[in-house]
């Protein structure tokens, strides 16, 4: 029948359009990834991998802030520690500290350090001008390395924050080891 044939053709056309829409939305899910990264970049929410710029270099000599350092490793055959556990700085004053890291495995390993701050609020006033956390670090078998962090605490830091803890955690870059042992679902 021509009438039912026409409806069937019409149905198929709509089916194809809706199926294309579904496939496009599947792609859209993946498009959200660069979109999200762009938003974080533009708004500066997530710039872990870029040096900050110190906007105000006026040193506030009237107060002193204690900075404590901490180093952790996550599931990684490295030893990682700060060379000094704490220092005192004036807000606005440039300070440099060093961390020591060594690879205990007999093959090269790549890791990435991710910083965190306590109190969390202090993070936005802590400007790192140089840091090993801006790039992935590859250590040869048994290599030991000393890595600097240069930072300025912004003088805008609220008065009641007297101690800031800077804590780094080194993660192994995913995928390097997974290919080797063949078991992705490690717990």
């Amino acid at each position: 029948m021509t009438a039912s044939g026409r409806i069937a053709a019409e149905n198929r056309r709509l089916l194809v359009r809706l199926a294309v829409a579904a496939v496009v939305m599947f792609g859209f899910g993946f498009l959200l990834v660069p979109f999200y990264e762009k938003i974080c970049e533009v708004t500066g929410i997530n710039n872990l991998l870029k040096p900050d710029t110190a906007v105000n270099t006026q040193i506030d000599l009237t107060r002193t802030v204690t900075i404590q350092f901490d180093g952790n490793i996550h599931d990684l055959p490295w030893q990682f520690r700060p060379l000094q556990t704490q220092i005192s700085v004036h807000p606005g004053e440039l300070a440099t500290v060093a961390y020591e890291v060594s690879n205990t495995r007999s093959e090269p390993v790549t890791g990435q350090a991710v910083p965190s701050y306590g109190p969390q609020l202090a993070g936005q006033y802590f400007r790192k001008l140089e840091c090993f956390c801006f790039a992935r670090q590859t250590l040869a078998a048994g290599e030991k390395r000393t890595m600097p962090v240069a930072f300025v605490v912004d003088p805008g830091l609220p008065e009641d924050v007297k101690v800031i803890t800077l804590s780094y955690t080194f993660f192994e870059i995913a995928g390097r080891r997974l290919a080797g042992d063949g078991a992705g679902g490690r717990s």
Binding site: V33, Y36, E37, C40, N46, L49, H74, G111, Q112, V114, F171, E172, I173, A174, G175, R176, L178, A179, G184, G185
Partner: peptide, 17 residues
């Protein structure tokens, strides 16, 4: 793919979030 194929969409260590 994060679990089995070495991508890092959500793993902070590999640049994901």
């Amino acid at each position: 793919t994060d679990r089995h194929f070495g991508t890092s969409f959500f793993s902070a260590a590999g640049g994901g979030d």
